[in-house]
Every structure is written in structure tokens, then in C-alpha cells.
Amino acid sequence: MTYKAKLRVWRGDDESGDLKNYEVDVNEGEVVLDIVHRLQATQAPDLAVRWNCKAGKCGSCSAEVNGKPRLMCMTRMNTFTEDEVITITPMRTFPVIRDLVTDVSYNYAKARMVPAFAPPADLEPGDYRMAQVDVERSQEFRKCIECFLCNNVCHVMRDHEDNKASFSGPRFLMRIAELDMHPLDTVDRRQTAVEDHGLGYCNITKCCTEVCPEHIHITDNALIPLKERVADRKYDPLFSVASLFRKGKEKRAAAPATPKG
């Protein structure tokens, strides 16, 4: 059952580095992260790699395996042939710290720019009532494990470093959509979606959806509806008024600093 896999692993820091060749034992049922761990334990104890749960729940072990953005813990070795060379590189969109570990602080900075959930001021804890069907839309987006593979693959940043300043990527546009669809939220984030988070840069190529390990329909269920709502607001004054009314009913029309609509 055991065989030796041929690995090429990127070793280096933000200044220099290259792909190094290794041969590592593989047992039945193992995933790429197991092989990286074995490499670490037997040949390269200082090989830097992030991981936590090893069960696809924490989103720490993001990397590119043969050029494809993947969670290493969810990439089974039997998806490769035994003589195939497996190349493991760090996520390309973020600066390398060392080996397979990248600096993902960009994502945390963008998260801080999304206006937080704001429930109606008069709603007491314990009095929240929401229908299952209404929470499900946002629940889909809350499955996100923040592996940042969607932001890594998004060509808006991947190919254009300069766009990072004005674009928050699928992860945080989806976060805006999630809050927007929360049945009890009272803030309108459409303007910030466009002006601060660069919604207009997204041209719905669905690369993010394809790499999402949680199989969230990022493009269809979050980004496109968010674009539609923004377009409604911008170009259709009548719809905008109607939407205010609808929001008022759905969201209990509280009066925060920036009311909906």
C-alpha cells in the first residue's frame, strides 16, 4: 500500500526561495497535509505550514497544490497517480512569510471595514424571532471557514496587486451580502459595498465559487444579488422607495445612523 510520493515544495521567505524536491512515504487514505507533516517530522523539521483541525473546518491549511487553490487537509493523495510529481506552493495572492505560510492580514483589515451587524435598538435579547426560511440565506454564507481561497483565486487581486487597496474580494463582499440578508439587521451597506469594498470590480467569473471548500454559491447567491440590489438603488428610484417599504416591514425599520434604502 505504501509508496514514495514525489513532492516539490516551495521553501523560502518573502525575499527568496525555490521549489525543493522530496520523496515522502504515503499510506492508504492519506491527504496532502499528512504527507507535509511526515516531511516535516522526518526530513524538514523547520518546514513552515499552518494547520489546525485537519478536518476541513478551520480553513488554516490553504495552499496551491499543482497550481490549484486547495485545503491540504481535504486533498486526498489518491487523486494523484503514484508517479505524479505533486507541487505544493503557498497562496499566490498573499505575501509569503515562510515556506507555505502567507501573510493574510489583508483579510483581517478588510473585515474591520465592514459595518457590523446592527439590530433594532429596542429589541431585547431573547425576543429575536426569525423564520428558518429567512435565516437560511445568510446561514449559507456563515458556513465560510475563512480559508481565504476565494480571495486568493480572485483575479482582480491575484493579477493586480494594486487593486487590493480598493477591493475586499469575494469573502468580504459575501460578508456584506450576509449582513444585508440578515432578517433583523438595520444598516444599509450598499454604498460601502461599492465605494469601500469594490463590488464593481467583480465580473462574476465564479472562480471563487469553484474553489470554495464549503461549496458556498458565492457568486450566484451572494455577489450577484448584492450587485442587483446596488443597481436597484442606483438606477431605480421607484424600486428604491418600494425597497425601503419592504425593508421597513422585514427589518422592523429602526432608526440607526444610516437607515436602509
Binding site: A116, F117, P119, L123, P125, Y128, M130, A131, Q132, V135, S138, Q139, R142, L179, H182, D185
Partner: peptide
Amino acid sequence: ETYGALFDR
């Protein structure tokens, strides 16, 4: 829930 959690209903 006041922080934004969305439990099943």
C-alpha cells in the same frame, strides 16, 4: 443573537 449569530429556528 444580538452579536449577529444565526441559529436554526
